[in-house]
C-alpha cells in the first residue's frame, strides 16, 4: 500500500510542494538572509551583519509601533472574546430569532479589511465632526476606532465558535448540575465555561494573531496618523520598506523580529490555554 502510494509523489504532492517552495520557502529563507544585507533589489545585496537590526532601533518607530500593537491587542482580545461569549451564551438559550441574530452578527466578518476601514472612517469621522476633530487629530481616537472596528469584525466569528462549543457540552452535565441544585450562574462558571475551554483556546489564538498582524484595517482607517502614532507593526514594516529609500534591509530585519514575536506569542498562548482544557 505505502509503496504503491509512494510512487505517486510527483502527482499528488509535487504541484503543491513546488508552489509552496517557490512562494513560501524560498522567499522565507531569502528574507532571513536579506535581513543581514543592504539592498534595494534582491540582486544587489551586500552583507552588513546585524546593522539592520541596530538601525531598526535607531529611531522610536519600531518600539512605538510595538507598544501600540501590544496595547491594541490586549484590549481587542479581551473585549472581542467577552462580547462574543456573552452573545453566544444568549443565543443558546432558545429565544426567538436566534438564527436571524446569528446571521446578522457574523456578517461583518466577511467584509475585507480595506472596505471595513473606510466604512468606519465615515462613521467615526461623522461623530467626531460634531466636536470639530477627525480620527487623525489624536492617537486615542485612532486607537479606539481600531478597537471598535476589530470588535465589529470579529465578534460574530468568535461567537460562532463559542456557540459550537456550548452546544457540544453533554446534556447530562448540565442536567446533573441542575439536579444538584446549582444556580444558573453556578452552572455557567462551574460547567459551561470549563467545558468550552477548547473553544476559548481557538478564539484567543485567532483574535490574538489577527489583532497582532492587523494591516488592511490600519491602513484604511488611519494610515498610521497622526504622524506614525497609530501605525501598528505590520504597517510600520510596510512603510519602512516602501516609503524610505535605503531602508529595505531595516524593513526586512523588522519583519524577522515581527515573525519571531508572532511565533512566540502564538505558541505560548496555545501551550498556556491547552493546559487549562478539561480532559473528556
Amino acid at each position: 500500500m505505502q509503496k504503491a502510494y509512494k510512487k505517486y509523489f510527483w502527482l499528488f504532492v509535487l504541484p503543491t510542494l513546488a508552489a509552496f517552495t517557490l512562494f513560501f520557502i524560498i522567499p522565507f529563507i531569502m528574507g532571513i538572509v536579506l535581513s543581514f544585507c543592504k539592498f534595494t533589489t534582491v540582486t544587489n545585496a551586500t552583507w552588513v551583519g546585524i546593522r539592520n537590526y541596530q538601525r531598526a532601533f535607531s529611531n522610536r518607530d519600531f518600539i512605538d509601533s510595538l507598544l501600540f500593537t501590544a496595547k491594541f491587542t490586549i484590549v481587542s482580545v479581551i473585549t472581542v472574546n467577552v462580547f462574543a461569549f456573552i452573545l453566544a451564551y444568549a443565543l443558546t438559550r432558545g429565544i426567538k430569532g436566534t438564527n436571524l441574530f446569528r446571521t446578522v452578527f457574523f456578517m461583518p466578518n466577511l467584509i475585507g479589511g480595506i472596505v471595513l476601514g473606510y466604512i468606519w472612517q465615515l462613521l467615526i469621522n461623522g461623530v467626531l465632526a460634531r466636536f470639530g476633530v477627525t480620527i487623525t487629530t489624536d492617537a486615542k481616537y485612532g486607537f479606539w476606532g481600531l478597537v471598535i472596528l476589530m470588535n465589529w469584525q470579529l465578534i460574530g466569528y468568535m461567537m460562532i465558535i463559542y456557540i459550537a462549543g456550548i452546544q457540544n457540552i453533554p446534556t447530562e452535565l448540565v442536567e446533573a448540575a441542575k439536579i444538584d441544585g446549582a444556580t444558573r450562574l453556578q452552572t455557567l462558571f462551574k460547567v459551561t465555561i470549563p467545558m468550552v475551554m477548547p473553544s476559548v483556546t481557538i478564539c484567543l489564538f485567532l483574535t490574538l494573531t489577527n489583532s497582532f498582524k492587523l494591516f488592511d484595517q490600519n491602513l484604511a482607517l488611519t494610515a498610521g496618523g497622526p504622524g506614525k502614532q497609530t501605525a501598528m507593526m505590520a504597517l510600520d514594516i510596510y512603510t519602512t520598506f516602501y516609503n524610505r529609500n535605503g531602508w529595505e534591509g531595516v524593513g526586512q530585519a523588522k519583519a524577522v523580529m515581527f515573525f519571531i514575536l508572532v511565533g512566540i506569542l502564538a505558541l505560548s498562548q496555545l501551550y498556556f490555554t491547552r493546559s487549562k482544557e478539561v480532559e473528556n
Partner: peptide, 30 residues
C-alpha cells in the same frame, strides 16, 4: 509514513504562523 512526509507536514504547519510581512518583499521579487 516516512521522515520525509513528517518533514513536509511540519513545514506546512510552520507556514501558518509566519506573518505575510516576513516574505512580502522577497515574494514580490520572485
Amino acid at each position: 509514513k516516512s521522515k520525509f512526509s513528517d518533514l513536509l507536514y511540519y513545514m506546512f504547519v510552520f507556514a501558518m504562523i509566519v506573518p505575510f510581512q516576513m516574505v512580502m518583499f522577497t515574494l514580490s521579487k520572485v
